[in-house]
Each structure stands twice: as structure tokens, then as C-alpha cells.
Simulated assay, not measured.
Amino acid sequence: MVVPKAKVPDVLQLYRNVCSGGHLGIKRTLLKIQERFYWVHCRDDFEDWCRKCTSCANLKRPQTRSRGALKLYNVGSPWERIALDVAGPFPESESGNKYFMVVVDYFTKWPEIFAIPNQKDSTVADKLVYEVFCRFEYL
């Protein structure tokens, strides 16, 4: 059946936006339309309709996932380079701590975990100096 230009939106609405049509993607839905209908620039009209469809736009994902570049860190001895992270807030403990500070040595993968009351820079620095650096300074 040849569709007049004025009725093209009705056909697209029928095949794309109703429960029986569904948002199956451009190729599958276009094949369903082309089985029964024809009009000039059918593919272009349909692709334009799909680009403007809010349901499809919400479901689309980027074609490539962006990932951070992996870097190789050369570490020659223990505690030469460390990683530090603060996790929380968690429910407050009896001693008033809400956060965990995690320190990991890059060379040995040795983790050190400390409970801290807040994530202020002075609190983190004190724990780092008095609990990590002082204990491992001989290395």
C-alpha cells in the first residue's frame, strides 16, 4: 500500500509507539513497516522519527564505554608509593567513628584500615603520620 505524505506520521505512530509495535530498533521495525507500506524516503522518515522518540533516547547507551586509561606504576620498594581512600559515612560506632580510612601499599598490596570520626584533612593527616608513617619509617 502506498502511503500519502500526510498519513506517514500515523503509520509511524502505529508501528512505533503502540504496545504491539514496540521500540524494537530501527531495522526490525522498518522491516515490519516495509512489509505492508511504501512511501518515498521511508527509511529517512523512520530514522528521523526514531531520533525524536523520547522513549528510545532514554534507553540508548553510548556505543563505547569510556574507561580511564590504565597506568603502570613502577614501584621499587615497600611503602614507596601508597594509595589512600576514605569511605563512609557509616552508622556511628560507640567510639564516635563514622568513616574508614584505607591505606594500601602499592608494592606489597598491604592494606591498613582505620576508623576515623570525620574526613577532615587534619584527622586524615594525623592518622597517616602517627599510625602509618611512624610504624613503617624503618623501611
Rank of each mutant, 00 (worst) to 15 (best):
K52Y: 01
V132H: 00
C53N: 04
P78G: 12
F100L: 15
A87F: 15
K52F: 03
Y99V: 02
V129F: 13
S95V: 05
C50K: 02
V11T: 04
A69F: 12
P62C: 09
F37G: 04
R36L: 15
L14A: 12
P91L: 09
K98E: 00
T29A: 11
T29R: 05
G76R: 06
R36W: 11
E47P: 05
L70P: 06
L12W: 01
Y106T: 01
E80H: 13
L84N: 03
L128I: 08
A125I: 03
R61T: 14
F46G: 07
V132M: 00
L24H: 05
R16L: 11
N17Y: 01
G25Y: 08
W110L: 02
N17D: 12
Q63S: 13
V2C: 02
W49Y: 12
V3E: 02
Y138L: 09
Y73T: 07
R28S: 14
I82G: 01
F107K: 06
D45C: 12
C56I: 14
Q63G: 14
R65F: 09
S66M: 14
A69E: 15
I33G: 05
D105H: 02
T123H: 14
R135G: 00
S122I: 10
F107V: 07
L12M: 07
N97F: 05
A57V: 10
E137T: 04
R61V: 13
K109G: 03
Q13E: 12
D121A: 10
T29Y: 04
L70E: 04
S95P: 04
D105Q: 07
R81V: 13
V40D: 09
Y106C: 09
K5F: 06
W79L: 09
K71V: 15
H41R: 14
W79Q: 05
K120T: 10
R51K: 15
D126C: 08
L14V: 01
K109V: 10
Q119S: 03
H41L: 09
V3P: 01
I116R: 07
A125S: 15
E35V: 07
S20Y: 10
K98T: 07
